[in-house]
């Protein structure tokens, strides 16, 4: 069973649809027991960092998430919430990855929206994926590059497109909206 963490963010249904298309059972939940016993956990998210962290704290889901031992995948805002700090809403995040999240300087169109490639791909999440492939991004804030970076995208400046630490994985792009390449990345995660 795959647990998709329910919180006040959009896009959760899309993640579940993508998991279903790959043949996995999933549940959208904020229940501690259900999340703890899941084989894999996904923290999705489109939304605002401050209100999302507030919601997670109120339900003490932040403490639960950092304590999880099974593979966890953060997507987009999910990744940013797993970083140290986000400039969006001046938000202290879960501090799993040693990166801060900042607003893109407005020297090009913001949000960074659409298909972009990535490079310096590391690890099993990107099996069968190459730097020529494109994935779908929608974000105005970017996670800086750090020791946890496993993929880099360059838009306005280089930033972390993928991050990993121990059992925690995350993508700044949306694998659930990234056609066959995204399906491959989600499949890699679900097969961990």
């Amino acid at each position: 069973m795959i647990a998709i963490i329910k919180y006040n963010a959009g896009n959760i249904r899309s993640v579940q649809n993508a998991v279903t298309r790959l043949g996995y059972q999933s549940v959208i939940t904020d229940d501690w027991e259900e999340i703890l016993k899941a084989d894999k956990v996904i923290l999705p998210g489109v939304g605002e960092a401050g209100s999302a962290m507030k919601y997670l704290r109120e339900k003490e889901l932040d403490k639960l998430i950092v304590s999880l031992k099974q593979p966890v995948l953060g997507i987009c805002l999910g990744l940013q919430l797993m970083c140290r700090y986000s400039e969006e809403g001046d938000t202290q995040c879960m501090k799993i990855f040693d990166s801060d999240v900042s607003l893109f300087p407005r020297v090009d169109k913001v949000p960074h929206m659409g298909w972009n490639n990535f490079f310096s791909l590391k690890g099993e999440l990107f099996n069968g994926v190459s730097a020529r492939d494109n994935v779908y991004y929608v974000h105005s804030y970017y996670p800086e590059i750090s020791s946890c970076t496993i993929a880099v995208c360059d838009y306005i400046l280089p930033f972390s497109a993928g991050m990993k630490k121990d059992n925690f994985y995350a993508t700044q792009f949306h694998p659930e909206k990234s056609a066959l390449v995204g399906e491959q990345i989600l499949k890699n995660f679900l097969e961990l």
Binding site: R13, R21, V138, K177, G182
Partner: peptide, 8 residues
């Protein structure tokens, strides 16, 4: 559409 399509 959402169930079947893997692009935005």
């Amino acid at each position: 559409i959402a169930a079947e399509i893997n692009i935005p």
